[in-house]
Design a protein around this nucleic acid. Sequence first.
DNA 1: AAGATCGTCAACCGCCATTAA
DNA 2: ATTAATGGCGGTTGACGATCT
Length: 311
Amino acid sequence: MSSLRKSSTSSSEDDAEQLRRGPWTLEEDSLLIHYIARHGEGRWNSLAKRAGLRRTGKSCRLRWLNYLKPDVKRGNLTPQEQFLILDLHSKWGNRWSKIAQHLPGRTDNEIKNYWRTRVQKQARHLKVDANSTAFQNVIRCYWIPRLLQKMEGSSSFSSMASENSTVPQSLDQASQHQALMTLQQVPGQGPGNLSEAVQNLDHQEQNSDSEHCASSCVSSSESMNNISQISQFAEYQTSPFRIIGNNDYNNTLAKDCYYDMEAINLASTSAPGDFANPVGDCHMPENNWFSNGFADDLWSMGELWELRNLN
DNA sequence: AAGATCGTCAACCGCCATTAA
DNA sequence: ATTAATGGCGGTTGACGATCT
């Protein structure tokens, strides 16, 4: 391949010069697979030589762990997996390997790529730092509820969530608005029209669903003033709301989420889809703006916001 | 149709911790 | 106890296909 290097004088350098880099060929994959099938993993440098691969041990290890290993899962991440990534990243940060241990078949590399290409992309769209509290709140209060809704009907989720999740298992409109307020209040985080853009999104989502709810929905700004009691997805109403962690972020998150905990407790008797508030002027029908395909592409939100900012 | 731009992901790099000699 | 080799991890790059203009 093109990455073959030319020879030099010393033998060690000669070896190094012979090493291949770049994409793996089928033949190399086959050599590695068959060697490991016969002799197992480990001692990657010597493995590479004995297998007849002109690759570094590191390269072989990476190829095996990230691609060739039989239990490596391919394809798009499920909503459950996305949820776990968001959840665990909020606890552990960029500990990709640690996060990957909780997603069987997924590699740290894949999770890292997902975070950088999907999640950070949205932070860029919002012009906020992906690790900022403001953005974490958007994840927590906007995206996770959508993922949760996508996971409804998924039998595998409930056990998964109860075992691993430390984020709110249900979030509500008030929490989402809280996130927006945070975005608005964090100095130097994002443009001044950010929360307005998101509120526009709320409004447009409602409008786009006007056949179902135009007469019964209040505007998002009204909701922000009035909502003090909310309901959430029935499936998660009884789940405990746990916050675990000892870093600053988690302390902040816990503090912020206390608001949500009260809301969830208050809402425990509410019917699903009923977003009534004490004033009684915010009633969300079942086809509210959470649903209706909006969650089909979780990460379309950034683009939506961007479009709205252009208008 | 063609060039520019964007998004994805496999692979590499550098650093650090651990292990073996 | 020291040092070199190795493994593991997170950050980054670059190739390539898709989409846009």
